[in-house]
Each structure stands twice: as C-alpha cells, then as structure tokens.
Design a protein around this nucleic acid. Sequence first.
DNA 1: ACAAAAATGTTTTATTATGTTCGAAACGGC
DNA 2: GCCGTTTCGAACATAATAAAACATTTTTGT
Lengths: 291, 291
Amino acid sequence: MTQSEQKIATSPSSARERTRAPARARLARILERLNEGGSISVTDIAQEFGISDMTVRRDLAELERDGLLERVHGGAVGLKRGPLEVIDDAEPAFEARTRQNAERKARIAQAAARHVAGRKAIAFDLGTTVLAAANAIVEAGPDPQLRAFSNSLHVGMTMARAGIATYMSGGLIRAEEMSLTGKEAVDGFSRYYFDVVLLGASGMTAEGVFDYSPEEAAVKSVFLQRSAERVLLMDSSKFRRISTVLIATLSEISTLITDAPPPPDLATVLASAGVRVLVADPSHLPERSLE
Amino acid sequence: MTQSEQKIATSPSSARERTRAPARARLARILERLNEGGSISVTDIAQEFGISDMTVRRDLAELERDGLLERVHGGAVGLKRGPLEVIDDAEPAFEARTRQNAERKARIAQAAARHVAGRKAIAFDLGTTVLAAANAIVEAGPDPQLRAFSNSLHVGMTMARAGIATYMSGGLIRAEEMSLTGKEAVDGFSRYYFDVVLLGASGMTAEGVFDYSPEEAAVKSVFLQRSAERVLLMDSSKFRRISTVLIATLSEISTLITDAPPPPDLATVLASAGVRVLVADPSHLPERSLE
DNA sequence: ACAAAAATGTTTTATTATGTTCGAAACGGC
DNA sequence: GCCGTTTCGAACATAATAAAACATTTTTGT
C-alpha cells in the first residue's frame, strides 16, 4: 500500500516504520523516465531493473493511486497537462497538487458535500481536498441560507462566485496556499461559531493530525474550538505520514472522510478516539460507515 | 524531421524497439503530427510506428470519437479550432470589465507603477484599473521590501503570487468585485498607515469622486484617512460621470492618474483643489504633468 | 534467531490490442 | 458512365497484456 512513502521525515528515534530503499529508488526512476519520454512500457521497465512484469504493474498501480501517472494498456503515460496553457498563471505548485490524487479527492469531496448538506454555517480550512469539497458543494446546488467562512482565497472565490455569503478573515497571505495567516486570521474567526468545519491536513498517525505550515496551525486550532462538528478530509496516501506540526489529536476530530479504509493500527486508535470514519466508495454507494 | 527517429520510450540501454510504446502514447503522437502538418495519412502512420493499417484506422476512429480530429479518406485532418479549453472561470462580469478600455487602463497602470516605485507600504483599492496597476508593479520587478494591503482578492492573489508580503482585511465577500466588505474590512485596515493608496472609482465631477457600491465606500474612506498620498486611477471615460455614492471630495485626492487631459471645467476645479494630474501618454514619455 | 509481514516471482486465466483476410465502398482517370 | 486501384470496415485469428491466486524470497520487529 503505502510502503514506499514512509521515509519522508521520520526521526531516527522512533523509526518503527519499515523502509524499503530499492523499491523507492525504482519508483523514482520510473517517474524520471516518464518525464523524459512521455510514456513507458511495462516490459521495458521490467528489463531495465531485472524484475518481473508483475512487479512493474504493481509499481505503476501504486504510482497511479498517488496521482503521479496514468496507466494505459502496455505501460503508463504522464498526466496530461492542459494543451499549451498560456492563459492562467495560477501558482504552479497548487495546480500540481490539485491534480495529484484528483480522483480520490473528488470522491472525498462528493462525500463531504453530502455530509454537510443542510448545514448553515460551514468553515473551510485549506488545501486542495477542501477546495474540491467547496466545489462539490457549489455544484450540488447549495442551500441559499448557507454562510461560508474561510481563510483560503481559493475557497472564498469559489463560494462567492456561486452567490454564497462568504466571510473571510484578514491576515498576511501565504502564497503557497493562498491562505490568510497570522493574528488577524485567528482573531477574524474568533467571534463566530460554526456548524461544521472541513479540515485539510498532510498526515496522520496515532499521535494525531499533522500539517506542513505552522502559520496555519493557529487558524485550524480556532476552527476546531469553535465548530460543533470537526470533519477531516484526507486521502489515504496520507495515512501514517507525519509532517511539521501537530494540528490536533485524534479525539478532537469528529469525522474522517477518506477514500480507503485506514490501516488496522490507525483504525484501532481512530475507533477508540471516537472518530467516525466515512469511506467514500468509488462505486456510487452514498457512504459506507465503519466505526 | 521527427518522423523517423521517434521511438517514444525506448530504453537507452539494451532493449531496442523490442517492445512497443503503449497504444495511448501513439495517440498522443498522432495528434502531435496532426498539429504540425495539418493532415496525416494512414499508411504513413502505419510505417512510422511499424503497425498495420487497420490499427491506425482504429486509432483514428477513437480520436475522432473524442472529437480530436476528423477522418477523411486515406487519413485524417485536424479540426478548424482547438477544442475550446476553458480553464479560467473567473467571473465574466469582471472579465468583461477588464477588457473594457483595456489599453487606457494599461497605460494608467504603467504610469501608476512608475509613480509608486520605491514606496514600502501600498494600499490597493478595488477595480480593474487598480488590478492592472498591481500587475504592472509586479511585472516591473517590485521592491522586495514592499508590503501590499488590499481588500480585493484579485489584487491579493496577484501580489502574493509574486512573492510580495500581502495583507488582507477580513469581511464578507462581494462577488461582483471579489472584494471584502463590512465592519471587519474597515477594522482590518484601521491599524495601519500607508505610504500611498491606489484608488479606483466609477465617476468624477466637481463635487468629488463617485463609486457604485456603498459597501465598499467605508473601506475607501479608511484608505483615504490613513494614506500619506492618495492616488486616484481613473480612465477618461469616467470624467463628469456620477454614480451611487460620493467617496471623496476632490481635495482629498493627492494625485489623479488618467489617460487623457480632463475637460477644462474639471481641470480647473482639480487644480484649485490641489490635485496633481498625471496623464499617461500613449507615446513613451514617462509622465506628463499639467497641474 | 525466530515469526510475521511485506515484497516479489510464478502460474493460470481473462481481457485487450493487434494482425489478417476479404468483400464493399470510395477515389481517380478515361 | 466504365474500370482499376486504393481504402475502408467487419469478422475472425493471434499475440500481447492484465489480473488473480498462490508460492517464494526478503525484510522487519521482537
């Protein structure tokens, strides 16, 4: 599953995650070749590394799940970028992240939109998954009484464009996320209460939920404190990954919406922390609960 | 030139054309050739890839089904127009206004960028002209010490994307302008002082400067109070026009940057109100002052 | 060192892509 | 209009690839 993505930032002390260097090197090399030629074939890769076709397919399947390539009969091709984009110069990093795991995020977003249907005051955190959820809510024909709150410029524009009353905090813009940070951002939300908050994050372990940016942690904290329900949107590639800053312990989360069941160890602690887990199924089943 | 040696993903090591590139890669290549030459023939493609004519036909049929080309006897030709890739879905009204008087606004924006070069704290009001000025400042290679302040989401994203420290107010989003309004917006700027504010407006008479939206007037008022220099950006089509709400009297404006000299009566009152008028000339004269 | 877990390899079976044949249709010259 | 030539498309045959199930090896944690 996630065997190759573990070794990001583990401290030498608590290195209880298994790491497999050879496989990782192979995956990196596969992506490299993909960027060189635009496409790769299964048998070529198998010959290059002296491994079986089956293993190559498994590698490709994993890379595809993480949204890094697209499998086709006989091999794989890179993700199609828009043909000759000259128009929009939206920050490339964000664009790229939007494409990553796009399908999973779409499923999560759909599930989230259904989950919060009917709520009147929704807070939107940062990240591409949350933005996808905002889009899904808009497309689902939102309640006209809905009021949205966010410190993400992307979310704000999305919701406002759809005619939804949208409140933003003030603050200093962090360009990477187009998010508002700092004391103003925290204060801006400190006078409201929300029915539900949709949170994004970059990692989760038994310890809790992690994110990259310390600047944004404070706002997330406010959202957590002031929301009746705290919904975390996170695709399964982030399970068992840690990151810079601990946002919340698991017990602070009401509901986790994801695209695949968490690994057994996480599932256990999630259950004991009272987190409701919704798995957004690829089939059109509305929601599958497994608490 | 690229028709003979175009193995798409052959391994550099041993495997020489032992395996074919995935079918999907072939489709991409076919489209590529179509865009180069305008038309392609079945037999040419078959030879290039070393596949049978029948397979080429199946490929072309698939591409035609996707609306990417038009099959003709013996091959295929490209479509007259690329299949409309509409990526940016910024609100049309704003888009349309951006195009209106685009050339005048560009000239004004250039002049404004030169005018505020070196200032450290710039406040940006709303409107397409001000946004154009923000873009011009970014493209001119802004001072890294510059701090920008705005209640316009468009301006905020533009500046932040360029790596400029950008502060936004909070507030309720007004979708038409993607602006932040209300008490939070006013309060958000009430603790700062600015070297200069770039103001937009929709009309001007001897009485003063007008704009459409009452919601935004309060923020403009704050900008005016707290800025050392108050620069109004307004194209000449707005002279002698009034609008919903009076933002400021002429004496509150330090500088007017426009694209053509104001009519005599306005020029007189502007002069007596102590407004410096800069006309951004279409020729490359930097600035022409006529106070 | 051991046992458990994960990764990889192997075999089998299904699926898909490609090649071939051949009659029908389209094209170009007369 | 006729004709010979080329191209097309349907049907079937074959090769290539994918997926599933199981066996084997490697790694990991105790």
